[in-house]
């Protein structure tokens, strides 16, 4: 009996606890991301933002969650029931799933796999299905148009993201697909310094991947009402909403890991470089990039669709391809 406990139950329990240790703070972070967005945009527009529920409005996410839970679930006429309910779950689950490989300290990631970067890229490229499925299953014009826009947009920007990932992997060298190795390779110099143009291109592509302003055409209010999640209500809507913010945090964490030295401290003095400080650095950097996401939304007007496609295919793709060739040329030429 004790043997069974030690060999089967305890390891399984340990895995579950490890996962919870990452997912619970993540979900809290996602909940407060919704508040942060409203507060940041309010600040940019000289307003106060939510400040009624709790001190400075800190209990606002809970109030929102409770409200959404008690709303009625509405299924549009002629909607495809299974796909309709599957889509928000898929969006949310995929946004959580990708965190499995994120290195949070130098010796902690839920799964420290060899091809962590490819896994991350694969999971984030699946995110488009939640949107396409919701658009199709709603049996409604606006969600369908939103889903079509989103599919084309996400596939386009994935191409340059893939090339940027290749640049990073080439720079790291052997074992470059492992996220821990990528972070360790930045101990002396962050990749944001070496690959500064790619850092910018990656961040803008991340904006397009998460359908955020200025690339939020899939949910463009002025022409598509709300885009792909127009027909959703109650918890289904909440799942889409949280999935979007979880994706923002994921993309921020990915940018931090690839370019801003992940969990590494920017200065190695006193206790700042200690291992226990690493999750804090990781969170701070991720929060900063997530803040830039909100900042951009408060500042930049929306792109037109042809401009979006032009930027993706005619500017970012050649630029990132050129950078791959340049990087590999320099590394091979100078024997680095």
């Amino acid at each position: 009996m004790i043997d069974l406990f030690l060999t089967v139950v305890w390891p399984a329990l340990k895995i579950v606890l490890t996962i919870l240790a990452v997912i619970v703070p993540l979900i809290l972070g996602v909940a407060y991301m919704t508040l942060a967005e409203r507060k940041v945009i309010a600040a940019a527009q000289f307003r106060h933002g939510p400040n009624v529920v709790g001190p400075f409005g800190v209990l606002q996410p809970w109030a929102d969650a409770l409200k959404l839970m008690f709303k009625e679930v509405i299924l549009p006429a002629g909607a495809n029931k299974v796909v309709f309910f599957l889509a928000p779950m898929l969006t949310f689950a995929l946004a959580m799933l990708a965190w499995a490989v994120m290195p949070i300290t130098e010796n902690f990631a839920i799964a420290d796999i060899n091809l962590g970067l490819l896994y991350l890229f694969a999971i984030s490229s699946l995110g488009v299905y939640g949107i396409i499925m919701s658009g199709w299953a709603s049996n409604s014009k606006y969600p369908f148009l939103g889903a079509l826009r989103s599919a084309a947009q996400m596939v386009s920007y994935e191409v340059s993201m893939g090339l940027i990932i290749i640049t990073v992997v080439i720079t790291v060298g052997a074992g470059g697909f492992n996220l821990g190795n990528i972070v360790e390779a930045q101990r002396d110099l962050w990749f944001a310094v070496i690959h500064f143009p790619m850092f910018v291109v990656f961040f803008i592509s991340a904006l397009a991947e998460t359908n955020r302003a200025p690339f939020d055409l899939p949910e463009g209010e002025s022409e598509l009402v709300a885009g792909y999640f127009l027909e959703y209500s109650s918890m289904q809507f909440a799942l889409f909403f949280l999935g979007e913010y979880a994706n923002i945090l994921l993309m921020s964490a990915m940018t931090v890991t690839l370019f801003l030295g992940g969990y590494l401290s920017p200065v190695e003095v006193w206790f700042l470089g200690d291992v226990w400080m690493q999750p804090i650095w990781f969170m701070l950097k991720t929060s900063f990039i997530a803040f830039v996401f909100l900042w951009v939304r408060a500042t930049v007007p929306r792109y037109r669709y042809d401009q979006l496609m032009r930027l993706g295919w005619k500017v970012f793709l050649p630029l990132s391809l050129f950078w791959v060739v340049l990087t590999s040329g320099i590394i091979v030429g100078f024997g680095l």
Binding site: F121, A122, L126
Partner: peptide, 26 residues
Amino acid sequence: AEFVAMILVIVYVGAVAVLFLFVVMM
């Protein structure tokens, strides 16, 4: 064969099947 697995997801699921679904939906 992790590499093949990841490439299968990235290329077929992430790109090819999206366009496929796109066309079939239309």
